[in-house]
Amino acid sequence: MKRAGVYAAAAVLAVLVLAALAPELFTAQDPLAVDSGGTLRPPSAGHPLGTDENGRDVLARIVHGTRTSLLLGFGAVAVALVFGGLLGLAAGLGNRLVEGVVMRLSDVGMAFPELLLALVVITVAGGGTSNAVLAIGVAGIPNYARLVRAQTLAIRRSGYVEAAHALGLSAPRVILRHVLPNAVKPVLVLATVGVGTALVAGSALSFLGLGTPPPEPEWGSMLSTARNFISRAWWYGVFPGAAITLTVISVTVVGRALRLRSEGRAW
């Protein structure tokens, strides 16, 4: 991967985070301001990305939707990482019984496609942004549990851990000094790439009408409405999705670069 591409992706991510924290910096328009006289207007000087069916500014809604969308991606991964990580560590460090229980549970979890598992959570708990975060996060737990366990086991079997034992370090000390620090980094790196997947899954829930409810701006739910106006307003369907894709690409590029670097390979 080219260095310039990685830097560009990192810059995009920085802009997105800024937009999530302070959307006013990027648009002066109110994302909720309805203008019944100016519905479905094509891009113009006043509305660079056009307006939606209620005359709201599409750019303002995309900018103000950044916070929710990033929350979906990062929040869901955080949920999956924390719970999956703890389970994986227990499996990787614990005795055979603990490992067996965790692994069989994750076998069952892996049998469900993530989106379907998320839909079960939504059916039971109801829709909304925080439930969507929870749903996608829960669906990701088995995956991260496996990842962390595999990582922990690989490190436990590595030469330097054996060398530390041979040196006479106590078992808890070996885990604290060598196993945990070495397991954390690659898992965090892989989680970065996972943010993109979670973001897509979260906005898919919104697209299906099960995530963030209108009128709150969110990229997936904007597309959900936009699909009714495809024949009349291309900009409405194109730009929010482009925002998702651009975000996912940036996260993936940065994540891959981090992975290559952590493996000691060139970008």
Partner: peptide, 20 residues
Amino acid sequence: LVAASTPTFWLGIVLLTVFS
């Protein structure tokens, strides 16, 4: 990268916009 990062629902909207 672009194909893998594009959400299915948006890809569908783009395909519909262009081809339908």
